[in-house]
Every structure is written in structure tokens, then in C-alpha cells.
């Protein structure tokens, strides 16, 4: 009956709640996905604040990037962007698989592929960090670059953890089914969110 209860108890709880309903209570509704989306709205304000700060810093700095700091290369981040955007379509296959036919095996496969793509993205980012000619504290341009991409990278990493958690839980047969798949759905929504943030980041850091 508790909306935030972890997935593994879901089966028992629905049962208990049904018993109670038959007596006199209405069931505690499952509001987890709605709540999660509200959370992401809040989370997007964090990024919005940082984006606006980025533009403010950019406006007050005469040369952006300052003299002596190289322009950012486009090739590696471009490939990375393609990988991350594609991964959104891959994870959506997992969602479709579980919703249409309750096919946990297929969902697991698509999740593994998404994890691999996300990990590749992070590896690419680390490679880029190692080959840039500036560090975190070199100048304001460098600091904003590392902070924004690092913050996003942290979100990608959390996404990988979420997907791993779903994989771990899905080892129990029947844990996820056609009707009960909050973990898979929420992870997918989160991953799309991280993806959209990256598209905005890519545009304002590399293109504009």
C-alpha cells in the first residue's frame, strides 16, 4: 500500500491492499511514475539554472573561449552524441518488449545493449577530458565546460546504475511483467531525460 515501496515487495503489497479494499479501503494508488516525472521536472530546473549561469558567464567574458585555449573538437563528441541518442531508441525496445508481451528476456537484452552504449559514451567523455589542453581550473571557460559535462556524466552514470539494478532485479522470474514494470519504465524515462539534456548541452557547448 506504500507508493514508494521497492519493487520486490510489489506482489505482496498488491495482495494485501486487495484484501483491505474488499473490506473498506480504497487501494493506495500507484503514483510512482507520476512522482518520478515530477522529480525529473525538478531535476531539469537544476540543469536550467546551470545553463543560464553558463550563458551569463559567457556574456561577461570578452573572448570565449579565451585566447590560448583551443576550440573544442567536434569529432569525438559528435560520435558520442550519436551513440547516446541511438541508445534512447534501444532502451525503448526494452519498454516495448515488457509492455507488449511481458518478455523479460528481450527487455534484459536491450538493457544490456543500452548499458554498453552508455558506458561507451562515458569512456569517450573520459578520453576527451584526458586529451583537452585545459584543466578544471584553467579559466572560466574550462570550468564551465567540465562542470556541465561532468554533471551530465554523473547523470549518465546514475542511469547505468539504475539499469544494472533493473537487470539484477529481473533475475527473479515474474518480478517484471506486462502489468508490473515500473522499474523498467522509470529507467527508460530517466534515460530519455539524460539524453535530452545532452542534446541541449552539446548544442550550447560545442555548436553555439
Amino acid at each position: 500500500m506504500q507508493g514508494s515501496t521497492a519493487d520486490q515487495n510489489q506482489a505482496d503489497i498488491t495482495y494485501a491492499a486487495t484484501i483491505e479494499t474488499s473490506e473498506h479501503h480504497s487501494e493506495h494508488p500507484d503514483l510512482r511514475l507520476f512522482g518520478f516525472i515530477v522529480f525529473l521536472v525538478s531535476e531539469s530546473m537544476l540543469f536550467l539554472g546551470l545553463f543560464v549561469a553558463y550563458f551569463a558567464f559567457r556574456v561577461v567574458t570578452p573572448d570565449w573561449p579565451p585566447e590560448g585555449t583551443d576550440e573544442l573538437e567536434l569529432l569525438l563528441p559528435g560520435i558520442n552524441t550519436i551513440i547516446l541518442i541511438s541508445s534512447s531508441f534501444v532502451i525503448h525496445r526494452a519498454d516495448t518488449a515488457i509492455k507488449k508481451s511481458g518478455d523479460v528476456k528481450a527487455a534484459r537484452l536491450w538493457f544490456v545493449i543500452t548499458i554498453a552504449m552508455g558506458a561507451t559514451f562515458l569512456a569517450g567523455q573520459l578520453y576527451e577530458y584526458n586529451h583537452l589542453g585545459f584543466g578544471l581550473t584553467t579559466n572560466l571557460f574550462a570550468s564551465t565546460f567540465y562542470l556541465l559535462t561532468g554533471f551530465h556524466g554523473l547523470h549518465v552514470f546514475v542511469g547505468l546504475l539504475l539499469m544494472s539494478a533493473v537487470l539484477w532485479r529481473s533475475r527473479v522470474p515474474g518480478h517484471y511483467s506486462e502489468t508490473n514494470h515500473f522499474g523498467i519504465e522509470a529507467t527508460e524515462v530517466y534515460w530519455h531525460f539524460v539524453d535530452v539534456i545532452w542534446i541541449i548541452l552539446f548544442l550550447i557547448l560545442y555548436i553555439l
Partner: peptide, 14 residues
């Protein structure tokens, strides 16, 4: 709380 607080967190991180 939902809309404004995250921006404060961003400022605190910076």
C-alpha cells in the same frame, strides 16, 4: 519547492 530549490543547489555546487 520543486521549481526553485534545484537552482539553489546548482548555485551551491558552483
Amino acid at each position: 519547492q520543486l521549481i526553485a530549490t534545484p537552482v539553489l543547489s546548482g548555485a551551491m555546487v558552483l
